[in-house]
Computed example of a mutant assay.
Amino acid sequence: MRSTMKKLALASAVSGAMLAPLAFADGHKFEISAGAAFQKFDSDRKLDDETGYGVGLGYVINPRWTVEAWWTEIDSELENNGGDVDTESARLDFLYHLENTWGAWQPFLIGGLGDVEFDVDNGSTTDETRWNLGVGVKRELSEHFDFRTDLRWFDSMDENEQDLGLLLALTYKLGKTAAPAAPEPAPQRLDSDGDGVYDDEDKCPGTAANLAVDADGCPMKLMEDVSVGLKLYFDNDSAVVKEAYYSEIKRVADFMETYSNTKVEIQGHTDSRGSAAYNKNLSQRRADAVAKVLVEKFGVEAGRVSAKGYGEDMPIASNEAIEGRAANRRVIAEISAQVETMKQR
């Protein structure tokens, strides 16, 4: 056991010497700890629970991880005859800092492996290898000092025995974490077109002030539905388009000129007087008459205009009344298109 402890102590010292330049070069630091250690022994050991002391050397790998070498000594007594038992242990531990949700107290997990020697005053000794797991908290007292405590469970790899240990210690932090470099003044960034996106990130410079933009500074496009309708009426048994409706037909022609991908179906209808066959023909003549005005007078391409008569089959009012029959003698059309617009601010 003493040979093992010497090797462990030597390895810790050599490691510390090798890591010392790094500790001060990159802001990491060594930690030297000392404090009181309480051991509650497994009942099979027949030892009194006692308090001793311990010292440790730690190296801060990063803000989460620290590796530590610890040596502790606890003087106990045998329960049956009162003989003294000197207990010395050496171990290597890894400490992991958890997310700090406790304010000034920093919780951590700890675990490691080491040797323990039980030296009885009658000259007999026993060595065991134990691994340990535990939890603890620490609190910063000053720039260089921390208070810490941890509770851990020791499991012997040589005997079927488990012990509990409690440590209360002060830690002295060697070195000082490097202060963060003062931030350089940020260069002034320009937004020439005032759209909220800086020039060095703006992929669409010069955007109009009234347009909403995306993260790249480009106008946000919207698709909108637009439409125009046509409805005109005919005298009884007539397919003559009254000039009063030319302005309505021109509105359809202008819409189709604006949206060149549109087509229109002119739909003709009649009231119910007369035979169904006659009314079908009359409705077709009415639809053809409106289509002719649209093409010949207002210049819409003939291939974009179709005409279809539906006869008396689709009334919108009762044919029993004069007003209803007048409403049914009609030609209608509906044209729609999708247009791309820019979203306004």
Rank of each mutant, 00 (worst) to 15 (best):
L141F: 10
G114P: 00
I110Q: 08
S192P: 11
R130E: 01
P183C: 10
R130D: 04
G123K: 03
D193E: 09
N210A: 13
K203Y: 06
D127I: 00
G103W: 12
A208L: 05
V137Q: 07
G217I: 04
A169E: 09
A208K: 03
L168N: 07
S192N: 14
D195L: 13
Q188R: 07
D127L: 02
P180L: 11
D158Q: 03
L164W: 01
P219E: 04
D119P: 01
K173P: 09
E117M: 12
D214A: 11
D121S: 12
P205K: 05
L190S: 14
R139A: 14
D155C: 02
E143T: 05
G196V: 12
P183D: 09
R148P: 02
L174I: 14
A178Q: 06
G111D: 04
A169N: 12
L168G: 07
L190H: 15
D150L: 12
A104I: 14
T101N: 09
M220H: 06
P107R: 10
E159K: 03
T149H: 11
W131K: 03
V137M: 12
F108A: 01
T125L: 02
F118W: 01
A215Q: 12
G196R: 13
A104W: 14
R139S: 14
P183R: 10
T126Y: 00
S142T: 13
D119W: 00
W102C: 13
